[in-house]
Structure formats: C-alpha cells, structure tokens
Design a protein around this nucleic acid. Sequence first.
DNA 1: CGGTCCATTGAGCACCATCAAGACTTGTGG
DNA 2: CCACAAGTCTTGATGGTGCTCAATGGACCG
Lengths: 233, 233
Amino acid sequence: MPVTPLPRKHLDLPCAGCVADSLPERLRSSFCSTLFRHAYEAEQPIFHEGTPALAVFSILQGSVLLWRMGHAGDQVVISMRGPGCLIGYRAVILGRPYTVTAEPLERTIVCTIPRETFTRVVRENPELALRLLEVMARDSFRIEDTLTARCMDSVSKRTARFLLFLDRESKAVPELRRGFHLPAKREDLARIIGTTPETLSRTLHTLASRGFLDLSDKQIRVLNVEALQRVAE
Amino acid sequence: MPVTPLPRKHLDLPCAGCVADSLPERLRSSFCSTLFRHAYEAEQPIFHEGTPALAVFSILQGSVLLWRMGHAGDQVVISMRGPGCLIGYRAVILGRPYTVTAEPLERTIVCTIPRETFTRVVRENPELALRLLEVMARDSFRIEDTLTARCMDSVSKRTARFLLFLDRESKAVPELRRGFHLPAKREDLARIIGTTPETLSRTLHTLASRGFLDLSDKQIRVLNVEALQRVAE
DNA sequence: CGGTCCATTGAGCACCATCAAGACTTGTGG
DNA sequence: CCACAAGTCTTGATGGTGCTCAATGGACCG
C-alpha cells in the first residue's frame, strides 16, 4: 500500500541509492526518471513474507525492520535497515517470494525498482553486479552477526550493544549517520533485540540502577559508555 | 595445512564447481589448469575466523562446518556445506578477514581459488558475477533459515528437522545427493543442531521411546517419517 | 585388565518467557 | 477541567527449556 508519491521534481536527487550510483553517468538520469518514490507509514509493510518479489526497494529515509513469522505467530527480527540500504533484492535475484516482511518503524521513503528494471540493469551493467556482490556480502555478514549474537549472548549483552550502537549513531557526524533513531516503543526495541517487552524493561532498569542509563524522562540516555561496553563485552 | 594434492590428471574433471561452470567454454580449461586440489582431514580447518581471506574454496567432496567462536570459547555453527558449495567468497569479495572457521567433518577435497584469480575472473566474466549473485542469495537465505530456527524452535523440532533432512539426503537419487552424511559423533550433531551433547542425547532418546527412531545399533535410523514431520512441524 | 573416549543419565540451576496485575500516560468527550 | 478509556510501561510470581557439572555405563584397544 504505497502512500504518498513524492512530487516528480525530487527525482533529480540520487534516487535509487547504490543502484544508481553504480551506473555509468549516461544511464543514471534515464534510469532514475523511470522510478518512483513512495512513503510508507510506520507499520505498513513495504512487502510481505511469502508474496511474489515484484520489486527491489532502496531506502531513502527512515528505518525498516525485516522479520519472519513463525508457525505460532511469533516474529523473529532478522535485521534493521536504514537510508542507503537496498531491500528485497535477494528474492528478486532468485525469482522467489520474499522471505521476510519489511516493516517501517517510522514514516519511510523508498525508491521502488520494479523486478524487470532491476534484473535488466544488473545484467547490462557488470559494474553494478560487482557492486551488488559487495552489498550482499555485507548484508550477509550482518545476518550472521545477528545469528551469533542471538545464540551466544544474554539479553543484557544484546541490549547494551544495541544501546551503544544507537548512541554512536546519534553522535555521528551528519554525513556518517545512517539515520537510525531510537524506536519510540519498548515493544519495537524488544523485537529488535530479540526479547519480550517485560524482559527488556527489567534489563533496562537493572542497567539504570547501576547508573549506566537514565530512564527518567521517557528517553533512554546512556550515562556511562565504558560500563555499557563492559556489559556488552 | 593442505594435505594431499590429488594427481594432476584429475584436473580435467569439473574442478571449481560453479565458478568453472559459469565460465565461457574457451576459458574453462585454462582456468582450471591453474588451480589445485587439496584434501583436508576432519577437524583440520580449511580457514580460520579472523585470518586474511587469501582464497575461495570450492567443495568437491566431503562436508564442512562453518562456525564462529564466542568470547567464552563457545561455538555457533552458522551453516553446513557440501559438494558444489563455494566457501570464503564473501570475505574475498569485501577484502576482509574470514568471519567464520571452515572445519571439515570428514576428509574433504576442495579446489583452491586464490584471491587474485577469483576477483579477476569475476570481474572479467559478467556471467559469472550474475551466477555468484544467485549463489550468495541462496546462501544468505540459508543463514536466515538457521537464525529463524535457532530463535523460534525447540531443540526437539530442530533435531527432528535435521534428522529428516539427513534421511531425505541418504535416500536421494545419486545425482541429487548433496553428499551430506550423518556426522559420526554426537558432539558434531549437537553443534550443528545448536545444542549440547547432553540435551541432544535426551532428545534422541525421547524420540526413540516414542518409536520414531531406532538408536539400538550405533546408528540413528528414522522409523516414522510422518511422526517426525509432526514434531518438526 | 585398566585406560580412554564417548554416550547416557541424574540433579540442580540460570535465564528468560509467560501470565497477571498495577502504575502511569495520553487522548477523548462531556 | 474532570472523568473515563485505552495504551504503554513496569513489577511480581511462576514455570519451562535447556545448560552445567558430575557420575555412571559401554565400547574399543593396547
């Protein structure tokens, strides 16, 4: 359910992230002019697990959660993606249904690259294929990281690590920011970390009682980075 | 620690799996003639997590476990790979150290493709780059599957699923076989499933007591596929 | 026959999910 | 402005799953 297509005049900005960036100059503008942007509201999935992969999406603004549904209706969050990330490309490459649901955590603007456009432009531009190999390798490592963390580390470690990540993110110089924000809701935070809201609440308050966090005013503020790093190991 | 390079005369067989297969005919033989095969004994890692990625390996025979080490010395098995699989290519593509250790479960024969050879041949053969995109997408999905299973499913579900996989594998027509064997040791089996030998033992004996398995003669035999499927969901 | 390796079994416990209830916030309508 | 409702966060109590540690039982082998 695409919501608000942005006005056409915005299309001269880099619009398909790394896809457009890796195209030869002469192709770039014509490629971008065929694409549209859409804004998705929070919780309105960009695509659903199990549905045919009709397009690849480049995230321009916002943040997206990729998750899978279990038999029992429970979710496993695979990854969190922000501006500059490409999503849905693996399913398109293999011609298979999406294996995850892509759910915006906030209002998120994406550039939609239809399946045919994507496969054609990749086939015709070897440079782009090489770039995609790198992108996918990086994404694959990130999934591996998630797997490792979920299997080996306690909730408190994973929590500390994620808070440190958000903290670094918020302090990064603007150009380096990847655009992740602290998810407003505890429930989202819990899903990302891979636990329940109850356990997360206990974990956060334990960390706060040790003076590492400040939870007083509805925001999570990191007070002691070094201590958190020790918790995160 | 490469062990026994096979005699040169064997090199006319397909030697670098999907890499050679995707090369134009005219290049294939010259490409393969530059490569060597090595046999690695069980438990003698082909490469180690954290070491510079000097080569990509194509598995010709045997089976390999990819795992990561935790701070506490514990291991997380990421994936199991068999004949036809390519390993180590993500690290080579990104020019980063290997993120996993590749440990043969049995005597395993691989074809070694040096980093420079690999990157050159990928750069020069767009067809191969496209093929690699598919290979990596598939591998990435498999890691995602592992993550999902580890986070959502109980040990008994994962055990049942893996036993069914091995059972199907052993009954497959030879051409379709991927060459996985039942790991001889309980400890290896436990690592693959993501649990401890103790818990695995209990799980197996529970399944056996329900008549789904036969553990009597040192081999695990599946007696009731349907029942196991229900356990695996 | 003792030694080693492996599988099994038992006992205890830690971590975390679940269920349930209470506290606090926010929004809505009178 | 207050009252009520709905949603969110917190806290408590409880239980299950699976890990750890330790002991036992076989199998194989010199």
